[in-house]
Write a protein that binds this DNA or RNA. Structure first.
Lengths: 373, 373
DNA sequence: CAAGTAGATGGAAACGGTTCCATAACAACC
DNA sequence: GGTTGTTATGGAACCGTTTCCATCTACTTG
């Protein structure tokens, strides 16, 4: 079925049929009805390739996701996809392996499919500024801040990783933890990994503590196995450790498994906290104490920014959204050892709640997302 | 950059340039070099829309995945994507919500993008046979058997859900469990959900037990929340229960969380087993006893089948791959209560190992995938 | 009533490729 | 030296849309 056949059968020309399809007002009701009748009768669907070819293809928005197993990003993707389609765009999602080069994929997609904009979920763009500018379309970095890069076509949406890590460390400190091991992502591969380490350092410094990068910090992939292996190394290098700060919930869960395999319990022997606030963190045993990144907010604001750049030709911008704090059962209170950690709200140490909005100029305040039955 | 500009700059015609791009042998080495030089100098990428338009677009394979949060399917997708691209096809992945109609999406994709074949990961196709045939291209159902449907263009690849559920029930029986609660997916929405229930029933019947569908079986979504809620209902309706058979690992984890929230421990008070064998099942606490679906095998055989249908015009076929069995710490042995379940291999009850290959005619035997440090 | 305006329509051109067909160059053969 | 075959090449036609432009009709207006 082509537009020509529709034209022939309806007795009108191809131009009129095309106008009907695109809701062009300059069509008589009579013609519209006649054409629509034929279209419906054959349930005709326009050929996307021909349409995109003619339109220079700039109809869709491409989303590149780093890693298939990251449920936080899957969640953000799901929200973004919906919003993008509601805004009338086609959405093309592509996954790429954690170790591969997402800019190379973006270049390929950009040349082949000519999208109107590209969103990167969890990408590493350090040192690739020129290649991003060369893409020539508005880009958005999601869950990774890029305000320091100064790339004209690159926006970003993220939480304040440094402040969040600092708040979490502060929480651990208030609970009496002084020997805190850190499981971090490779800081050369992603800026959030670096910021989460410096956040811990800031909190340490405030209390006159030193973070020994050799013994206390282990680098790992953002995976269960990565968290597991890093925890094993920490136990060896830093035996006086009472708590582990993991840079993602998945790493935290891997670390907890390592503890149990070594005959240690969480939180009784070693406390563990995470970062991300994925759904699973509320179901794991023990329930994770973690930083919550609100996926709906991130997706919503991210799509807003990207569409503003695309439609209104707005300048790129960098937004920081508030993070939340979820208190689970995975951190032991060393100050009041009687409390086993399951009753929340006894100390209420959330400096996070007040700090999180500062610097982002937003009225939005993230409420801790706690599982309720 | 278009092919015409390349032609002009290289001094050859568009035909020759196109032949170079498509590795047509009828090009002199001289011309090939000249054209390639220009192509590389401008790192030209052909426009996919124009190419697909001319080629009647039948170049790609579309994959439709039900639900973004299912890491088992994400895993299968990852493998399939790689294999499809290695075979020289473009791969288009689309996620669809667990509650939406995947055939409607397939119809849209089929009409717009005209793929050469469509793979459905975890779809529900019951009662939609005619619509699948109407798609007019080879289709493949992954992790869902379809041999009973007799749709000419629909193949399938799956484990024997019924035998797997039966084997797991048998295992629970051997461990002394008689009051087994079942958390199942909606059997009207997916055949595997039904088969897993009948598998449990078969094992029950063999031992003269009855499965009380009203008290012992709860239906739920394949999600953490679904498993959680179902477990809560089971605890109420079926208080004598000593074990829960969940139809997915995610449901099992949700159920375990429900137990802890009710002050019960797993496996000490209630045993729980899962289905799928996702990576997380080896890291959760307790480690899950579960059926393992080997994602690499499923993806490999699935892509094979689909490509055979596409390239060689082969008839549709239905393959059943072997399932694996993973013994974790989530099932308590009621017969030898001294054993706390963590030392595997003391009873070696794997009838699964021998049963799994029967009926599939395959030499392949899945080894239990156990986490080793 | 002439002239201008607005709305509806048909059809050609263009988007960027692939492929077929015609042609040219050259070698091999009788 | 013509005939035949092989190989390399250029270019037109086409894929299915959108859009621009020309045309036509009908209505408004001075």
């Amino acid at each position: 079925m082509t537009i020509k056949e529709i034209a022939a059968e309806s007795g009108y020309g191809v131009g009129t049929v095309s106008r009907v399809l695109n809701n062009n007002p300059n069509v008589s009701q009579e013609a519209r009805d006649a054409v629509m009748a034929v279209i419906l009768a054959h349930d005709y669907q326009p050929n996307a390739n021909a349409r995109h070819l003619k339109l220079q293809a700039r109809q869709g928005i491409s989303i590149i996701i780093k890693g298939t197993q990251n449920t936080l990003l899957s969640d953000v993707l799901e929200h973004m996809q919906l919003l993008i389609e509601q805004a009338g765009y086609v959405c093309m999602a592509s996954y790429i392996d954690q170790d591969d080069d997402e800019i190379a994929l973006a270049e390929k997609i950009s040349a082949e499919k000519r999208p109107m904009g590209i969103a990167f979920l969890g990408a590493n763009v350090e040192g690739k500024e020129k290649r991003i500018e060369a893409l020539g379309v508005p880009c958005l970095l999601v869950t990774v801040g890029a305000s320091h890069l100064n790339v004209s076509n690159l926006s970003s949406i993220s939480v304040d990783d440094e402040a969040a890590a600092e708040a979490m460390t502060e929480y651990l400190y208030k609970k009496g933890h002084r020997n805190i091991g850190v499981i971090a992502g490779n800081p050369q591969l992603s800026r959030p990994s670096l910021l989460r380490i410096t956040g811990v350092q800031s909190a340490f410094l405030r209390h006159g503590l030193m973070l020994d990068l050799h013994r206390q910090v282990e680098f790992a992939r953002y995976s269960l196995q990565g968290g597991y292996d890093a925890a094993v190394r920490l136990l060896q290098d830093f035996p006086e450790m009472t708590a582990i700060f993991a840079s993602s919930d998945i790493m935290a869960l891997g670390a907890i498994r390592a503890l149990y395999d070594k005959g240690l319990r969480c939180p009784e022997d070693i406390s563990v906290c995470g970062f991300d606030g994925i759904e699973l963190s509320r179901y794991s045993h023990p329930k994770l104490t973690t930083i919550v990144q609100n996926t709906a907010t991130i997706a919503g604001h991210g799509v807003d920014i990207l569409l503003r750049c695309i439609e209104k030709n707005a300048d790129s911008s960098h937004e920081v959204v508030a993070f939340g704090f979820q208190e689970g059962d995975s951190v032991r209170d060393l100050c009041f050892p009687a409390s086993n950690g399951s009753e929340a709200g006894d100390t209420e140490p959330e400096t996070a709640g007040s700090r999180q909005t500062a610097g982002s100029g937003m009225a939005y305040v993230e409420k801790p997302v706690l599982h309720s039955v």
